[in-house]
Structures are given as C-alpha cells and as structure tokens.
Design a protein around this nucleic acid. Structure first.
Lengths: 217, 217
DNA sequence: TGACTTTTCAAACAAGTGTTTTAATCTACT
DNA sequence: AGTAGATTAAAACACTTGTTTGAAAAGTCA
C-alpha cells in the first residue's frame, strides 16, 4: 500500500503521467471503452501501475475528475463579470463556454470529459453536476432572466438557458455529422468564434422578441 | 449459406426478431458496447444465429440500418407540408423531429440509433447522413432562409438551422444532466410538447430579430 | 553498507467478447 | 418414408478486458 508515497518524486511523476494520459483517453473513448492498457502505454508505465496507484480503473477515473475539478474551480464566478451589461455578459459566457469545450491547449480533455459524462453518465455525474454544471447554469439562467424581463417565469428562463447551451453543445456532440453536412465549416478557432457570435446574436434576438410576445402564451 | 431462405417463414421470423432486438440494444448501448449475446437472448435465439443470418455483428448492424431507412423513407418530403406558411412549417418540423427522437412506441429505437450515430459514428454514418439527415436539413434550411428574408446569406441560414436542431437534440444528449439540473422537467409527452412550443417560439423570434439586425454584421 | 519499504515489471488469471465448429433438428420436396 | 438442404443449438476457440501475483529494482534511512 502506498499511503505515505505522495511525497515521493518518482511515484508522483508516474501518478501525474497516469492522470494526464487517463484524462485524454477517457475523454476520447469514454469510461467503458477506454482501456487501462492504452492509458498505461501512453503514460509510459506498466499496466499494473493503475491498480497500484489508484486501486483500479474506476479509482483512476474518479481521481481524474477530482483533478479536473481542482483545475477549474471558481470558473463560474469568474464568468459573472462585473460592470458589464447583460448583452456583454451573455457574449462572454458563450465565448467562454465554447472555448472550454473546444480548446486544444493544455488539459483539453477536461471539457471533453465533462461533455462525455453528459451522454454516458457514470457515478461521477452527480458530483460533476453539483460542482461545475449547476453553478454555470445558475449564471446563465440569471442572464436569461434579466434579458426576459421581470414578467418572465422561472420556467421560461430555464427553457431559454437550455436553448443557449443546446445550440453550443450541438457543435460538440454532432461534430461528425456537421463536418459531413457542412464541409465548408471548419472547427478551428476562427470557426468557433463565428459560432460564438451567431449563438449570442441568435439567442439575444430570441429572448428580446420572446419578451415582447409575452402575452401570446 | 442461406441465400434462398428469404421465403422461409421460420427463419424469417428469427431474422425479424433478431433485427428488432438488435435495434433496441444497439440504440441503447451503441455498436461497440452492445453484445451479440444480449441481442440473441432478447430475440430468443442462439448466439450463433447472428453469424448465421447476418455474417457477424457488423452485418447485423448494417441490416438494422437498412431496415430503419426503409421504415422512414420519404419522411422529409412529408415534412414539407403544403399550403402552410413558414411559421406553421417550422412548428411542424420541430414537433415532428422531437416526436421522432422521443417517441416510445413501435420502433422507438430508430430515432435513438440515429442520434447515437451522431456522437459515436461508425461506417454507417455516411449513408445515414445521405439518406436521412441531409434531406431534413435541407427542409429546415429552406424554412430558415425564408424566415431570414432575401438578404440573408446561405451561411446565416445554415447557422440558424443548426441552432434549431441543437436546441432540440440537447434534450436527448444531455438527458441525464437535465433530469438532475431541472427536477421539475419531465420527459413525458406533455414535456416534449412544451419543448416543441418553446423551441419554435424562441427560434422564430430569434430569426425575425436576426433579420432586422441584418446590417449589424 | 544493509535492512526496510516503496515502486516497477513481466507474467498469468478470470471473465467477457465475437466467432467458429460440429452435430442435432427441422423443413420441404419426391 | 426418405433424402437433401436449411436452421438451430451447445460447446469450444481466439482474443481482449481489468486485475492479481511474485519477484526484481529503486529508493530511504540507520
């Protein structure tokens, strides 16, 4: 048992390598389809290392999630922005969300892992919703509520928040279809910026008009 | 080899049972995670039956897709509707799409299989896009174009079409998250109708306003 | 250095996968 | 009834999966 081993440099190195590799592989294949052998190989470690350091595949998965949570702690509060009007805050939220999902830099697997957990939930979903998704949804719902005006119900704000998120996440979930259906669309940084601009504009327009038609329903 | 066996009643019965069971299991677990043993058991057939009748797991998968295509042939054209204005056609499209995805009746697996292929593409995706997705996208894009007015570019119509689809499909892909995040929302028929009404209203409003702000970009 | 723990590694294990085999059963036709 | 072909069924096969094992290597501290 390695309980006092957290100060060891070498073992920590393999633990870190394992975590990083696991993040990528889990994000790419999902929990079930990912294999500990691919993770171990990618980390340059032995197959047994996963069981030794994390007690098994599931332990590794949870450790990856804990790491991810630590990395993005307080990101929702930061999203709030201060001294900005509603339109700007919505634009910021949308752009930040998309960058989080489509970023290719360090820890690109974090957003992907989060998104995958949405469609293939594991036991880690409850914690994920509580720690990361709920706070962000709260921010977005607040923005929607402000845009919809005082007459809007909580129900309407929730529907609109889901519409905003849905528009964005569609580009992630349906990527294979989109690339086939719209060959001109490219998923690079400039493409994502265009998506952000459209979603912001579309949603802003939608909620403004939504508000004016409030008596229609 | 069973080549002249298509007239046989009994064998056809097991083939049909196998196809039906496979549709459900593939839709629920995806191609890779589905097991031929679960399919066989569900169909009340032997494990070897899959290989005997369809040449293997992949052959069965493709047969399931061919069956699904046959079932929903010409559904896009029917969606066009005639003698209806744009708003009504959008409402019809949205409602039809959602019913297709969330229907619980016979062949409920068809929509689920289609949706799963979006996120976990196999070799069947190209055919699926060509046969089913492309035609429907075409209809929706036409509606969007009409709503956006003559000044709108093809690019804008495509973005708006993706926004409409994204709003709806989000309820499918992120179902585990939505049920946790919005405990009051229920996925029954009445819930789906509410989604359809909201998406239609939100998108209609979005595109109308989008159109008016055409010079802003 | 030398005992002690921690970590690594190759090998093997048990369970589950799709597929094949082989024989038994059923169906259809004369 | 009898024969040939089509279908079913049980068993085994080859392979991959996560996990365990036992010994070798590396590190730690006196």
């Amino acid at each position: 048992m390695a309980k006092q081993a957290q100060e060891n440099q070498l073992s920590e190195a393999t633990q870190q390598r394992l975590l990083e590799a696991a993040g990528e592989v889990f994000a790419e294949h999902g929990f079930k389809a990912a294999t500990v052998r691919e993770i171990s190989t990618k980390a340059g470690a032995n197959v047994a290392a996963v069981n030794y350091h994390f007690g098994g595949k599931e332990g590794l998965y949870k450790a990856v999630f804990r790491l991810a949570h630590r990395c993005s702690h307080g990101q929702a509060e930061q999203m709030m922005g201060s001294g900005l009007n509603v339109e700007e805050r919505l634009g910021l939220f949308v752009r930040g969300f998309l960058e989080n999902i489509f970023c290719e830099g360090q820890a690109a697997w974090h957003g992907k892992l989060m998104t995958r957990e949405m469609t293939e939930p594991t036991s880690a979903l409850d914690e994920l919703v509580r720690e990361e998704i709920q706070p962000r949804e709260c921010v977005l719902e607040g923005i929607c509520r402000e845009l919809l005006g005082k007459n809007a119900t909580k129900d309407q704000a929730e529907f609109c928040a889901r519409s905003v998120i849905g528009q964005m996440i569609f580009y992630y979930h349906a990527r294979p279809v989109i690339t086939r259906l719209f060959p001109d669309f490219e998923y690079g940084p400039e493409g994502i910026v265009k998506v952000a601009e459209h979603v912001t504009r579309f949603s802003l327009a939608g909620m403004r008009k939504y508000k004016d038609e409030g008596r229609g329903r």
